[in-house]
């Protein structure tokens, strides 16, 4: 998994609350069996009109946001479905981090397993960044996970917190499965300690 330490890039403004994962990547694109190639379908129903032409009214189609790698959203970003495709699509499009007032839980879990940094800022800080981004186009931001700091060259600074395990996953680009497999003996001991409860599930296939 790709790690995240520090990133500088330009920001795109979404200016909507409760953007759900059905909007981030509509269901017709969940039929693929790969992890890549979702960038073209990001925000598909908002990004294109019925004839497949870019919708000029949608934020990401604005020329000043071309090449943006930092997405600024509102509150409750990526609520709804558990689809990891939402993270794959944001990453594939080029985003490295999303700044928002709040995020849905499963989305955050999916982010940290794919090198996409979810940054929680206060609504005042998001509002401040929003007005700066409206003026300076494009707005360049630096997001530093080591220091927990979002900053601009002209003096905007905001601290952010992220839970320690999530921070570690991102900083180290952790192979989580490999890490858990190192606990094989504990897992086996756990299974051995409660075989009767586990066997309740499917006795005819019971392995222990």
């Amino acid at each position: 998994m790709q790690s995240f330490t520090i990133h500088t890039g330009t920001a795109a403004l979404l200016e909507r609350d409760s953007v759900d994962t059905d909007q981030i990547i509509p269901k017709q694109f969940l039929k693929r069996i790969e992890r890549t190639g979702y960038g073209d379908f990001l925000f598909f129903d908002w990004r294109y009109d019925a004839d497949g032409r870019p919708n000029p009214a949608f934020a990401l189609n604005a020329p000043q946001y071309a090449g943006a790698t930092v997405l600024i959203a509102g509150k409750n970003f990526a609520c709804g479905s558990s689809r990891e495709h939402a993270v794959w699509a944001l990453r594939d499009y080029g985003f490295r981090t999303v700044l928002a007032v709040s995020f849905a839980d499963i989305f955050v879990n999916n982010c940290v397993r794919n090198g996409l940094l979810p940054v929680v800022l206060s609504s005042a800080e998001i509002a401040e960044l929003t007005s700066r981004a409206r003026l300076a186009t494009p707005l360049s931001l630096t997001v530093d996970l080591q220091r927990g700091l979002v900053s601009t060259k002209d003096g905007f600074n905001a601290d952010f917190q992220i839970q320690p395990f999530r921070r570690m996953c991102l900083l180290e680009g952790l192979d989580e499965i490999g890490m858990t497999l190192k606990h094989e003996s504990e897992i086996a001991a756990y299974e051995a300690s409660r075989p009767s409860r586990i066997s309740i599930c499917r006795p005819e296939l019971r392995r222990l």
Binding site: E84, N110, T180
Partner: peptide, 22 residues
């Protein structure tokens, strides 16, 4: 609870999940 595809892979491989207490 629902999980993402990376976590599905983690459960398939380990029958465990790495979680923080909600």
């Amino acid at each position: 609870f629902g999980i993402g595809t990376s976590e599905v892979e983690h459960v398939l491989a380990t029958q465990c999940l790495v979680q923080q207490k909600p």
